[in-house]
Design a protein around this nucleic acid. Structure first.
Lengths: 271, 271
DNA sequence: CGGGCAATTGAAATACATCAAGGCGTGTGG
DNA sequence: CCACACGCCTTGATGTATTTCAATTGCCCG
């Protein structure tokens, strides 16, 4: 059920990229040494990785069809790990479809989700340099992703100053989000944190879609929201209930609808 | 008092770098277009910026004396801003002496300190690309710092792949610390957060000193600790009191002593 | 000497966690 | 196809960590 619930967005991009793919319980390369451009058409133009890897490489449309970076495509079911916190990998994965999360865990089980990964997101940008980021990356829905060889990718990016600049911008955005997260966790109260998370995610989904709708695919469990906001699942439930009773949002069937964006924004910016 | 209390470490480096400098209330260039190497001798070998800007530039000791990056030296008193959150600056500052802090503020006054800056720290690495980081950087003690022209520095760093690699490593460390901060704020309790902050700072100070001592310069007010840990000054006071009564630390006269590192570590790693 | 910032302390308030029970949907094995 | 277990969500009662409020002290600085 989770797999099919990756919904319109993810399904669209996945289909665009590789056609019908049956879910594979074991992680296994599907297409070896595929050129990036092969999988990049309309949907990818919305994807951050597209700017970095495809669109940024050549100005001419014809040239755009070939790219010298090999990659392999993988599919994993929900709840499986994409990146082990201690695993040294020579690959840099980029999400093609589905939702994933990047988190840090404490030995006693407590954990903090640093970011949610949607199609086009690079799994741990920093891993270009430092192979082990200490992050656990786990699939939330079924996820397809593309693994690039670190060395090749690095050589390509470091060789071109325009790509380097773009890469730096991505890094800055990641750092900036991490800082904002710290501000949220340290200085905002539960309802603010949750409202902001919802708004951020709605933005993030909207950026990947051609049309802007109130309702969007929302595969997160309340435990995910709790781990992202530093709260307890129980408390998340209570506050989501309040937000729904107040008519700001509606959650149902792995879908979220923002009914009153203005009011929700007011909660997010309390004071 | 704050100014003079920057203490042994900061005083040492400041003196090493520029000799005796009288505090100047208004921010004002002291040395225009000074070569970096002029100010970099023994003390700088401990400085992260030294590796990035000085030591990394040439292997031969003689060549090391000249460096093609111009900078200006500035001195500001405690509590003054080094970087305005909205200010667009064409300079990248690096701390030479004293303590500063980098924080994000909310319109209602709540704020979160992202990092404390000690001698050698680059003020907002990301500002190499994105001029406005949204961070407020404020002097805690009297601070001297060096302003490098962004364009020159960027050209230098981007041109040399070894320096670039070093820069990326710095960037990764910053991101990693930001993620750890999020974990601390989201998932650890007050005593853990404070114990960890103290240990981190003691590490940071130790890395800048030739000798490792239990006692080190500690110019922070409890308000700073509160804003760094997402707590209230009152609560910080209570917990610091407990830690002192438990014989783990001792605070007095802008100085902190770790009396029982093992026990403090246990509090920091609760469970 | 007086004013203001910093720290301490205690009492009260509150935000959030923990504990516990029940319902609902979903996958599973008989 | 049903019974059942299990994960997920909800809700209420209770506990606790942290905040807020307030009063007091010491200290530095003007």
């Amino acid at each position: 059920m989770l797999g099919s619930s990756t919904g319109a967005l993810a399904g669209h991009m996945a289909d665009t990229m590789i056609g019908s793919t049956t879910a594979q319980p074991t992680e296994e390369p599907k297409v070896a040494a595929t050129m990036c451009a092969v999988s990049c058409d309309t949907a990818c133009s919305l994807c951050p990785a597209y700017n970095l890897l495809c669109g940024g490489l050549s100005k001419s449309a014809s040239e755009q069809q070939s790219l010298p970076v090999a990659s392999t495509l993988h599919t994993i079911p929900a709840r499986r790990l994409i990146l082990h916190p201690k695993e040294w990998s020579e690959f840099v994965p980029i999400v093609c479809s589905g939702w994933a999360m990047s988190s840090i865990a404490l030995p006693d089980g407590r954990r903090q989700i640093i970011s949610f990964l949607l199609p086009g997101d690079v799994v741990s940008i920093g891993s270009l340099i430092a192979p082990l980021s200490g992050h656990t990356v786990e699939a939330i829905t079924e996820v397809t992703y593309r693994k690039f060889k670190r060395d090749e990718l690095k050589e390509l990016l470091f060789g071109r100053s325009d790509l380097l600049e773009r890469l730096f911008k991505l890094w800055n955005e990641a750092k900036s989000r991490a800082d904002q997260l710290a501000l949220d966790l340290g200085r905002r109260r539960a309802d603010e944190r949750i409202a902001r998370l919802i708004l951020r995610l709605s933005e993030k989904v909207a950026r990947r879609s051609t049309v802007r709708t109130q309702t969007f695919d929302f595969p997160l469990r309340q435990r995910h929201i709790a781990d992202a906001t530093g709260l307890t699942p129980v408390h998340v439930s209570k506050i989501l209930g309040e937000l729904q009773r107040a008519g700001m949002i509606e959650i149902g069937g792995r879908t979220l609808t923002i009914l009153n964006a203005a009011e929700l924004q007011r909660v997010a910016d309390w004071r």
